[in-house]
Design a protein around this nucleic acid. Sequence first.
DNA 1: CTTTGTCAATCTGTATGCATATTCCCCTGG
DNA 2: CCAGGGGAATATGCATACAGATTGACAAAG
Lengths: 217, 217
Amino acid sequence: MSHAQRLRQRIEDEIVSGDLAPGSRLDESQLAARFGVSRTPIREALLQLAATGLVQTKPRRGAIVTASEPHLLLAMFETMAEIEAACGRLAARRLAAADAAALTAALDGCRAALATTDTEAYYAENYVFHAAIYRASHNAFLADQALSLHRRLAPYRRLQLRVRQRLPQSMAEHEGIVAALLAGEETKAADALRSHVLVQGDRFTDLIAGLRAPSAA
Amino acid sequence: MSHAQRLRQRIEDEIVSGDLAPGSRLDESQLAARFGVSRTPIREALLQLAATGLVQTKPRRGAIVTASEPHLLLAMFETMAEIEAACGRLAARRLAAADAAALTAALDGCRAALATTDTEAYYAENYVFHAAIYRASHNAFLADQALSLHRRLAPYRRLQLRVRQRLPQSMAEHEGIVAALLAGEETKAADALRSHVLVQGDRFTDLIAGLRAPSAA
DNA sequence: CTTTGTCAATCTGTATGCATATTCCCCTGG
DNA sequence: CCAGGGGAATATGCATACAGATTGACAAAG
């Protein structure tokens, strides 16, 4: 793999993990010095990230980590909900034995993480769970789109850690989703997934709005 | 706007319009000479196109216009169907007067184009019609995703020109979709849009498969 | 004291140069 | 006549150089 691709992954990871917060300036020379390469591969990495929406570039004014407005964030979560619902619909129709096994395993992982009350661990397992659903759709393109959007929303997921009592509810919803998938109930699975993601979106946008308003005042 | 951005649009247009066929090699030096710039902005344009999936790059082996396998093409159309269904669901719920006007106007445009039996004109109006639905979802992000995927599938839409008797059927489906949207029937609108796009996907993949098999033999 | 204009420093965008990997062709051997 | 290997040509990927734009500060005027 080329330097540019490696750098793209590393920078993307730093954004997704929250090391680079939304709104951060991404100075090309600075990044080049930090990674020990010239500006060229850095530029190429940033351009690719810009194409996926993770960073924004203004002409002659460099790149920043995309800081989405609350209303756009809500739109992104709504889109995520619809895409996940679509994955659920297709997964319920096409579920293979291997998919069922992966889903129940992921569910067990969530349950175990919930028991430890380790929030970070739960979100790691949550990622595995949702990725399993994407894969179970047996539509590689849709699964890619879902994963990509999931990653793009990741910087804001960290904020959810502050919401109380969301985890047990999330777990219960997961159980319902898996039950519908295993039963092959397309509509039920789709609806359950849609509302599962939508409620997250609502909480997030509430949080964001609440965080922004005071700082603006 | 920078050279790279202009070039990205121009190259994208040439791909979408079919001037650059799927599978075509995109030689950096050649493109640089053709557009009268150095290789750098060409590279940046190609990288951005690669990030959106319109072109594919292999390390040290340059870029080609993405030539999707039939099964991936089917997956893309299936995804398009689900995304359009989601747009329809939201549009039916949120339809404003301006949206309704835009939809009926687009419908009239399709009808007029159909009457002239000008296939290209119909597809232009078809684009306007679908874009109106995307916008009516009142979700800017989802609408962007839909438009982006629509463009990505455009190179293959041209092939549909060969399918007979698709236009009148498409028109009838459009009428049904608008009726459901105006009536605010979410599920009906979503289902109508999903099958409207899915049948296109089926036809396309049939075509592709039919075109590929003889050439491979 | 505030505001505006100018200048300097800095950073982006593009061009060019160079090293290396790949590919294609030709030559040699069987 | 065909297959395999080696070398040259070519194209990519990265580094460096340069021009133009933006930003920030500082000074001067109101």
